[in-house]
Amino acid sequence: MNISLERISRSFGGFTALDDVSLEIREGELVALLGPSGSGKTTLLRIIAGLDAPDARAGARIRFDGAEADLSVPGPRHVGFVFQHYALFRTMTVFENIAFGLRVKPKRERPGEAGIRTRVAELLSLIQLDSIAGRYPSQLSGGQRQRVALARALAIEPRILLLDEPFGALDAKVRQDLRRWLRRLHDKMPVTSVLVTHDQEEALEVADRIVVMRAGKVEQEGTPEEVFHHPKTAFVMDFLGNVNLFHARMEGGHTGAMTQVRARPHDLEVSREEGSGPAVRGRVTRVQTAGAAAKIEVATEGGEAIMVEMAHDRFKAIGIAAGEAVFVRVKDARVFVEDYTI
């Protein structure tokens, strides 16, 4: 289902959670709303679900497949919604939790008991939990609970699936497994989905499109590649990964102006020789090789700390140890207009 949000604002007392946000979500997409806490992402999700209403302002409009939603009527829309803390019904078994959405349907739409059993069995095998249909939520692990919550949301065959930090309460390992599983699930059943998260890794890995939010506004939207490699603002670059900050003086058009240069740790190079081109002189303070890449911390002569990342084979080839004097060269960096100071 296409979702079109126009000029949505929402304030709570004096706090503006959403400030004139417009957003298009297309049929079959998996969109991640990414931002720090307080950026308005959850509020936006709850407004799509009808669990909250936008401020009554001129032009505020939500359309589902072109049909305008009546914003004056509060109450949840029939969507699949997955909560961070699962919100399972604890007096019901896993089976009954998943069957709930089918059982509460009006009589003429409700499948028979056999139909309900088949549908729940399908969903149970989808979430790979066939064997625990008779258990109660309190007997499940966090990851299992969240899968049950997802199956429960999918049981009513929603045309929109909304996920509010679904993996936020889980262990790192379980979180990784589950988000890959979610991605595969979406490839199999492309329900239009909106995922709220503050974990940039999760958004980059799972989403077709990322909407980065900041202080109630959309900062940038685009594919994971676009937002990661071509951030439009310093905020997006900072939020999507580690960043080294250099203070530099401009030459050419704005000669003399101070600016900030941002470079990702893997876009820096460390060597013992000064070589050609601009380089920063410093001393290695710490080397950390446990992980996917070798991490080298360098303290510049100005006292700033720089983080450099490189592949292990390259690290072995140059063999740098803590305490050595080195030169850090920037292979790729970005300057954002907002950071100019004259």
Binding site: G75, R77, G80, F89, A153
Partner: peptide, 12 residues
């Protein structure tokens, strides 16, 4: 959230 979940699933 329990009530909201039930509401989203279509319960009156």
């Amino acid at each position: 959230e329990i009530e909201q979940a039930a509401g989203c699933l279509g319960a009156s």
